[in-house]
Each structure stands twice: as structure tokens, then as C-alpha cells.
Amino acid sequence: MIPVFDGHNDILFRILQAPENREAIWLTGEGKGHLDLPRMAAGGFWAGFFAIYMPSPHDPDADMDVLMDNPPYQVPLPAPLALAPSQAIAAELASQFLWMERSSGGRFRHVRTVAEIEAAKAAGAISGIMHMEGAEAIDPACDALYLWHAAGLRSLGPVWSRPTAFGHGVPFAFPSTPDTGPGLTDAGKRLVRVCNELRVMIDLSHLNLKGFEDVAKLSDAPLVATHSNAHAVTPSSRNLTDRQLDMIRESKGMVGLNFATVFLRPDGRRDPEMGWEAMLRHLDHLIGRLGEDHVGFGSDFDGATVPDGVVDVAGLPRLIEAMLAHGYGEAMVRKLAWDNWLGVLRRTWGA
């Protein structure tokens, strides 16, 4: 089985919503959601970024679901989050992530380097990288980022979709461009510099166009969008324009294909009945623009509706089979599924 490295999942948020059921959610599988240890093993999921995501007091998901079933749409952005409650939620989610390692009986490891990922796989263990989706738990002076780095944080998105002290996310909108607001704040520019100093990967998924361009000007690291697709195929605000893809290619960066149907389907709908065509069209476009060494997977498992061909993490081998049948050779598929993520992490982390 070809191993898979995944750029984004939200299982920690699923555990946050029902912590009393965390053993069933994680260890044995409860028959819900997209991820758990048994299905990850069955699907060849060997490593991935696990997102610490701070929800808004009013969860916009219900509003989003209704709107995304009926494009065109523009989902109103939630209000910014305050620092103190965000820090409390982030700490709770990080604690759950560390519990996932402790409870796994050696089947799951919190990793901080590429060498640790490779060692975990050799030992038969799945690797988890601590990622923060939206930097609301980081103070504008970025002092907390040093603490989080010491705790193992190795990837950070300055924004989810709502604004933060650092910049502006794109709204969930279709059709729309990602050019939806101003660029990074002074604190956001400081955040880029500290991430570069600590070699924390900066995730550009969710960031608006001007913020993306600011990061590109300031950062000395590869540009990475962990879970984004091609705007030329699906004109969603969350997808990347060809100009953005060119900037990522020039930096020797990376894009992880987002499995969310609303960012895959040309009509922007949430409907999972779609077959493989849309996923393969996005992969074709991303590979054509970035090259086969700079594209991977960024599923958004447990955070989105995914195509009916995938269903959940155990369906990853079916996606691999579809890619092979599409004409991608096995060596290329191994790059897309595994090797490319390790490559960009070496270039970013240095180890």
C-alpha cells in the first residue's frame, strides 16, 4: 500500500465537541467522522498535520451548510476571538493531542522533525504534527509562539477565515476571488519573522490574497497551503489563483489537495455525489502549474464534506487507485501521497 501523508484534519475539534467519548472517537472508532486509529491504519495514513482550531462562540457550520447547498453564497464572517479564551481552548486541544499519543499504545507519535516521522513509520507508528489553524492563541508580540514551539508546534496558519491580530482570512464565498481585504498587520509581519526564526511552517490556506503576497515578500521559507485547491477549476474564495500557485512553485513550496466538495466541484456545491473527475481535474491543474514535486494531499477530514468515492480515511486506497487509473505512474503517485510533504518539511524545518 502506498503510504499517505495528509496536510490537514480536524479530529481534535471533533474530540473537543465530545470529550467524554474520546476513547471511542480515537481508539476504536465510533462509526462517525472521518478519522480514528483503526481506519487510519486501514487507509495507509502514516502522517499528518492535526489542527488546533478555536471555534467561534456561534458555530457558523449550520449557516454554511445551508448556503453551500445553494450557490452562489457568501457566508458572513464570525467576529474576531479574544486572546484569553482562545489560549484556553488551544491548551485544551493540545492536551487532547498529547492524550492521543499516550493512549495509543505506541501506534501514534507526536513528531517534530522529518527524522522522527521516518523513525515512527519504520516502527509501525503514525506520525502527528501539531498545527494551529488560526493564530488567535498567539499574542500580537508573538511571545506565546516561543512557548508553543517548545511544546511541539511546527505549523501555524495566521488566520482561519475570521480576522485575527495578524491578518484577514477569506470568507467562504462562491464565486469569488481571494482578493477580499487588506494584507498583514504589523503583528502579522512580526509573526512571519518569528516563524522563520523558529522554522515553524506558515500555512497560507484561508489567508486572503494581500496577506498571501505579504508572506511571500517577507518569508524566507517555502510557501505552503496545506489544504487548498485551484481557483481556475473551482472559483471559490478559498482556492488559489494561478498567480498564487506560481509564487508557491518559485519558492519550492507545496499545496495539499483539499477533499472538501465545495472547493472541488465546479458548481461550488456541497453534494458528495461527484465521482473522481473533479479531484483529478484539480490535481492535473496543480501539477501542471506547480510540478509533480510540489503537490500532495490536504484532506480536511473531520472538517468538511468529502466525495462519496473517498467517504473517510479508509477510502484513501480508492483515491490512489483512481490516480493510477488516470495515468499517474506509481512513482509519481508516491510523490503526491508521501514524498513531497517530507521534502517541503525538510526545506522548512531543516531536519
Rank of each mutant, 00 (worst) to 15 (best):
L290W: 06
D308W: 09
V333C: 10
L290M: 02
S299A: 13
L280T: 12
G291D: 07
H326L: 09
I287T: 12
L319H: 06
L324V: 02
D293M: 04
V311I: 15
I320G: 06
G296I: 00
A325V: 08
E292S: 14
D302Y: 13
F301H: 11
V295F: 03
G329D: 12
L280W: 11
F297I: 14
R281F: 08
M274A: 12
A304C: 15
G303K: 14
G303P: 14
G275F: 13
I320R: 11
L280P: 11
F301W: 13
L286P: 07
G296V: 02
V311C: 10
F301C: 06
R289D: 00
M274L: 14
D293Y: 11
H285W: 12
E273F: 11
D293K: 10
V310Y: 09
D300E: 09
I287S: 05
G296P: 00
M279H: 10
H285N: 07
L319K: 03
E277N: 15
A322M: 04
H282P: 08
A325H: 12
V306P: 04
A304S: 15
E321C: 02
R289M: 11
M323I: 01
F301Y: 14
A337G: 08
V311G: 02
V295A: 13
G309M: 13
A278M: 03
V311K: 14
H294V: 00
G329R: 02
A314N: 00
G329P: 02
T305C: 04
G288W: 04
F301D: 01
A331F: 00
G298D: 07
M279Y: 10
V306I: 14
V295S: 11
G309D: 09
V306W: 03
L280N: 09
G315T: 02
A314Q: 02
D302A: 11
D284C: 08
G329S: 05
T305V: 15
T305Y: 01
H294R: 15
R318M: 01
G329H: 04
G303M: 12
D300R: 07
G315A: 05
G327I: 09
A278S: 15
M323T: 04
I320Y: 01
R334L: 10
G309R: 13
